[in-house]
Design a protein around this nucleic acid. Structure first.
Lengths: 337, 337
DNA sequence: CCCTGGCACTCCACAGTCCTGAGTGCCAAG
DNA sequence: CTTGGCACTCAGGACTGTGGAGTGCCAGGG
């Protein structure tokens, strides 16, 4: 139903529109690309494409622009992933290699992605629930207050101050600390809840109230609080692409952690590249944007997701290339540190 | 040289322009405010004010708008700090009281300020260099790698992984940990450098290479790395105030930690409210904005700064009120936790 | 000396008009 | 199925006219 040439026409329209931001007409199409047919022929093809809903004209007698459906077909069948230049690869490598802790890795990744694609970059912190406990530390701050620090094998450190019901001896805190480490060390975070449930029996009855306070904070921190942070960068890039009236809406959405989590979550769990175009995003306020995202992590497990967000009219092949490449390098960095 | 009425006129112009965004003329001025003189008189006053550089007209035969110098006079002599409504005060209190750790306090503060003022909020993390060490923890991660965690009395936790030259025994690490805590506990961060210099003598000669690695990371983390983070929120509020073409520039500046640090740093060190208007900001790209900032902290020491950023045409009295109130509450929260 | 009303002048913003050029759809012929 | 031709549409730029808001200046009055 769509022959080879019509697809070529659609591809050409997408490419031209992305680079010029202007509706593209039959005439300009034939001399920019070397399709060996006349404008009139193209017009017939365009009429078909429009009828099928892949393109529209903003007003009568203007050129055509792709619809969401058009972009969808484009990314699915008409374009590949554009590999990065070797200079870009080197840049990524050296830039990320300089990072010295997890926060820094994430920050650098965001910057890198934003710069590479000239879009908004979104990077989710490596997920807690997929990592395991490496160490638990309790630090007395005051008589009835201690600092709880949990270190995971992804290098993430969670800290909480805990209010104790009773004043605690240094000794009993150290004991509790030992118990915690003995039982939680190496445990996958999904197991923590059940393990913690059995812990009270292992501590001195005298200390149970204090221990209970610590346990409940641990649960809160590791289990119930699924809200991994998402870091955003390159918001300035939104100004070039005019979102008619929606810029404010987009900026607002980008500041809502919950919204971002949902957005990234929608792309599913598989580690490969995902593209969500325009209205495919159920997030109110981001209906006019597209998201190119992928999972990343060490080895084959997906720790979190990252990607770029931009107007539906974006350079998908390049964005996909950059996202994929960056995700790979970040994975390597995380595995190596 | 500027009599009472001329000042009143300037005040009225600023107030009207801020609320309407439109150049204000003599006629509209007299009936909005009850100055008991005729428009003609106002016009004469305006002529003087313009001559002195407090106001300008965008084009002949349009109303006047304040210059940076005009705003400066306004905040210095013509307006007070508008206190918050009691409802707002309650909102601040309850909103901040719900915070459970330092990160959360900062995040909530940013949101609060942005919402209250409808401007961009900037909050600097409590400064390391002004706090002292509460605890140092070393956690073995692998044979030649340990995690260094430093907890300060402002509740901040710094973590770094340290690569050791030699494989380390559990024992020697524990010893090092004891030494570190003995010597650093309670030390003001400004003292850390000199204290650490003397430490190598206290450890077993065998362990010196490893200890040296740890020490150098401590210095890096606490002393050399003055780059406290600045968190930004409410960027969406920039869209209402049109910065002609500068929006991109502003957004870019807001993503540069270094720039933000400099911006806040310029306001000096004293704990009181500071206002920097338009070109008074030396930061390229923020010349079209104003900053209302203040120090905050526990008791009388200034731990860091926070404030709001907006167009020079902003509601200074309200912004100042909000900034001051929020800073106070944050100080209380920090002191109490 | 300062305030006031009057007056002539300026100029932006807005609406209307016209025109051009890019682009279309349709059709008949190759 | 492709092509050239043709009539048609319409957004956007250039130009014009008008109304209104605002100004500066001046002469008269408190």
């Amino acid at each position: 139903m769509l022959d080879e040439r019509k697809l070529a026409v659609l591809r050409a329209i997408v490419e031209d529109y992305v680079s010029t931001t202007e509706p593209v007409g039959s005439k300009s199409l034939v001399d920019r690309h070397n399709l060996d047919v006349s404008p009139a022929t193209i017009r017939n093809d365009m009429a078909v494409l429009e009828e099928q809903g892949f393109i529209v004209q903003p007003h009568t007698s203007a050129g055509r622009i792709p619809t969401d459906k058009g972009y969808r077909l484009f990314v699915d069948r008409l374009s590949g992933v554009k590999p990065l230049s070797s200079a870009e690869r080197r840049a990524i490598e050296t830039f990320l290699a300089g990072a010295y802790d997890l926060d820094d890795v994430v920050m650098r990744t965001v910057r890198l992605l934003a710069q590479l694609t000239r879009q908004v970059a979104v990077v989710q912190y490596p997920s807690l629930t997929r990592s395991s406990v490496r160490h638990v530390e309790l630090v007395p701050l005051a008589a009835k207050r201690i600092m709880l620090v949990i270190i995971t094998d992804t290098g993430r450190v969670e800290q909480r101050s805990v209010e104790l019901p009773d004043a605690a001896e240094e000794d009993s805190i150290m004991h509790l600390r030992a118990v915690l480490n003995a039982c939680l060390d190496g445990r996958h975070l999904t197991e923590v809840a059940s393990v913690v449930a059995d812990l009270p029996e292992l501590v001195d009855p005298m200390d149970r109230p204090n221990a209970a306070a610590v346990f409940s904070v641990i649960l809160e921190t590791l289990v119930e609080r699924t809200d991994e942070r998402v870091v955003v960068g390159g918001a300035a890039n939104l100004t070039t692409a005019d979102f008619s009236r929606g810029l404010r809406e987009v900026l607002e959405s980008l500041e809502e952690q919950v919204v971002l989590m949902r957005l990234l979550g929608e792309s599913g769990d598989h580690p490969s590249l995902t593209v969500r175009i325009g209205a495919e995003n159920t997030v109110e306020g981001l209906r006019g944007t597209s998201l190119v995202a992928t999972g990343y992590g060490t080895g084959d497990q997906v720790l979190a997701r990252l990607g770029v967000l931009g107007p539906t009219r974006m350079d998908y092949p390049t964005a996909m290339g950059a996202v994929r490449a960056v995700a790979r390098y970040v994975g390597q960095i995380l595995a190596g540190s």
